[in-house]
Design a protein around this nucleic acid. Structure first.
Lengths: 205, 205
DNA sequence: AAAAAGTTTAACTAGATGGTTAAAATTATA
DNA sequence: TATAATTTTAACCATCTAGTTAAACTTTTT
């Protein structure tokens, strides 16, 4: 066996970068080849079709997303710590992959069928354990009653959206308020946590 | 002058539907013509290029979004009422245009330059008046201190994300919890409002 | 009815793009 | 060094798609 892994790895990195930037329909095989430092013939030699290559990348992206969730939710730590950990971890991932959420959300809107292979799997088993823990906290009166699904949606929304609206908001807050949007993104680790705590902490101490 | 308005209107409706469903690169002029019930030659007769047609649609979409914001923020009503109004109005728009946010966010990620024409304009002047009102409330001690920009981002995130992740979550909550996702979306008018109120209401009454 | 505007038909161009192929060149392996 | 695996070159094919064109047809206006 020769150094095929190296080239394949470079192709995958390039494909991931280009697909996430341009989306499935926007990406060009030639551009992926260029970014990988090879030619189109070799690219097709490794991955016969654009579809096959995209499937692979989409799978990896899905793993990036779901493993982040699982990592934070699997640990056996107090509820508020888990929230904090989840937020830190997620914003960390997003800071490194700012284009990833819109790429992912756009592709599943265009082609929801692609998700079926994942929904069957146990990718979200950790999430259901989190839902149980959340219910326990509510029953014990340690947090206010909230619908667990709504709670998760709220959290994800506050984490993801600032990255998605960056092209719109960054110039505005920069011009009108003199704020650097990247600073603002980093602040959110603390801000979102505090906002959530305030929202779910019971009124009486 | 003949019944040109009628046809032009049908083209715009068709283009809006197709562009929002498929995006700029995914949309086909032939598909837009079909959806408008005309042929490709006539479509090009009204709008010379795909780009021109898209620009027009993108402008309209931007107006849909920003006019919703302005409508709620311009009224002279108490702060909490304004929040509630904003939420109701926004979820209403999203229920009627569920694909719109990802379309918009994807396009501005692909092509941020397109926004420049809008950022100059006073589309967001109502938002800055809202920011001032928010600061006043904080200074008067009627709500907890929150960074206004973070607050807006939180709100937008909680409103938009549930629509964006619908293809992923709808099958999951349907299968595992027996919940109809559309019911869940409608519930959010109340849920998000309550969550926000809880988060920003001061501790002492 | 005649003129003008709107619409269709149908064929066509030009360029982009995914994918293929075969031979040559390079690199690694035995 | 000989063999095998990897990579490049470069031309090529087929298809898709935006956009054009000119003539015929239909509807509206005068």
């Amino acid at each position: 066996m020769v150094k095929t892994e190296n080239t394949e790895e470079r192709i995958l990195e390039a494909a991931r970068a280009v697909f996430i930037r341009k989306g499935l329909t926007g990406a060009r095989m030639q551009e992926i080849a260029d970014e990988a430092g090879i030619n189109k013939a070799l690219l097709h030699y490794y991955f016969r079709t654009k579809e096959k290559l995209f499937d692979r990348i989409f799978f990896e992206v899905f793993q990036t997303i779901s493993s982040g969730i699982n990592q934070a939710f699997t640990e056996n730590i107090p509820f508020f710590d888990k929230i904090k950990k989840f937020i830190d971890l997620y914003i960390g991932v997003l800071l490194e992959n700012p284009y990833l959420p819109i790429f992912f959300l756009n592709e599943i809107q265009q082609n929801p069928e692609r998700l079926q292979q994942f929904i069957e799997k146990d990718v979200f088993k950790s999430m259901s354990s989190f839902l149980i823990q959340l219910s326990d906290e509510i029953n014990a009166g340690r947090i206010r009653p909230v619908h667990p699904v709504h709670f998760i949606i709220n959290m994800i929304g506050m984490l993801v959206i600032p990255f998605a609206v960056k092209p719109l908001l960054a110039p505005i807050v920069s011009r009108q308020l003199g704020i650097d949007y990247n600073d603002l993104l980093r602040e959110r680790k603390e801000v979102v946590f505090q906002f959530i705590i305030n929202a779910i902490k019971p009124i009486e101490k």
